[in-house]
Simulated assay, not measured.
Amino acid sequence: MSSQKSDPVGNRDLADAVIVALGTNDKGKFATCEKGLEAALLQLQQAGIKIVARSSWWQSMAWPDPADPPFLNGVAVVETALDPKALMGALSRIEDDLGRVRSRRNAPRTLDLDLIAYGRISGDLDGLYLPHPRARERLFVMGPLAEIAPEWRHPDNGETARDLAARASVGMDAAPVDQGAS
């Protein structure tokens, strides 16, 4: 799939934006981590989840253990007919299909798909917390989001992705990587 960075959300109404974060630090069966993330984007589309815009890939040291392999992360703004719980189910199935094994918390992983926001929904949806409770602190989420939707506003505090990226306190080394990097 080619990068849609050149076609960001632009004038689209971001109040209803559905935002998915992607990450990996274990290439699994893929030649590179980037190829694994690209496969995840393809599976999203095959599941009927339209990619409206996507960021470049960003690399950062693993957290909380920087001795683990570095992470490759990105964000996609998507359109879907699925409700938030059904979308989380689809994201989990894609993780499983692409080899995600859940072991210890924060262990290296072949794929991590997080639902960051679903429009203006805020609160606990039977164990699914929206917006993602820690995303606004993470440069490896807010940086890529600010790249494609800098004026997106956090449902709880109204701050823009651009402002949240500037104040992020986790993953401060996160930065875009050149296309073709692992």
Rank of each mutant, 00 (worst) to 15 (best):
L98N: 02
Q179F: 15
E34T: 15
V177S: 10
A39H: 04
I148A: 10
S2K: 12
L41T: 05
L125S: 09
Q45S: 12
I51S: 02
S6M: 14
D96Y: 05
N73W: 02
I49E: 05
K50Y: 00
V20W: 03
L37T: 04
G123T: 06
R105N: 09
L14P: 01
D13E: 08
K35Q: 15
G23I: 01
L111D: 11
D83Y: 02
P69C: 07
I94G: 05
A181N: 12
N11H: 11
S60C: 09
R93N: 11
D173M: 12
L130T: 03
V177P: 05
P176G: 09
P150G: 07
L87E: 02
V141H: 07
P108F: 10
W57Y: 15
V9C: 13
D114T: 03
D68V: 00
P84T: 07
R162Q: 14
N157S: 03
D96Q: 12
R153K: 15
D26W: 13
D114E: 01
D173G: 13
R153M: 12
D156K: 13
A15E: 10
A17K: 06
L164T: 00
L139V: 05
N106R: 01
M142I: 07
T160H: 02
N73L: 06
L22W: 06
N11Q: 11
A168W: 06
T32F: 13
W152R: 07
A40R: 02
V177K: 07
G158F: 03
Q45E: 15
D26V: 09
R105W: 12
I51L: 08
M88T: 06
P108H: 05
P155E: 15
A17C: 03
Y118T: 03
L44N: 07
D173T: 14
D163P: 00
V52N: 03
G28M: 03
D97G: 01
L164F: 06
A146N: 02
G127V: 04
S122D: 15
L42I: 13
L111Q: 05
N25Y: 08
G28I: 03
P155M: 14
R162F: 13
R102D: 04
R105V: 09
A166P: 04
L22T: 02
S3W: 10
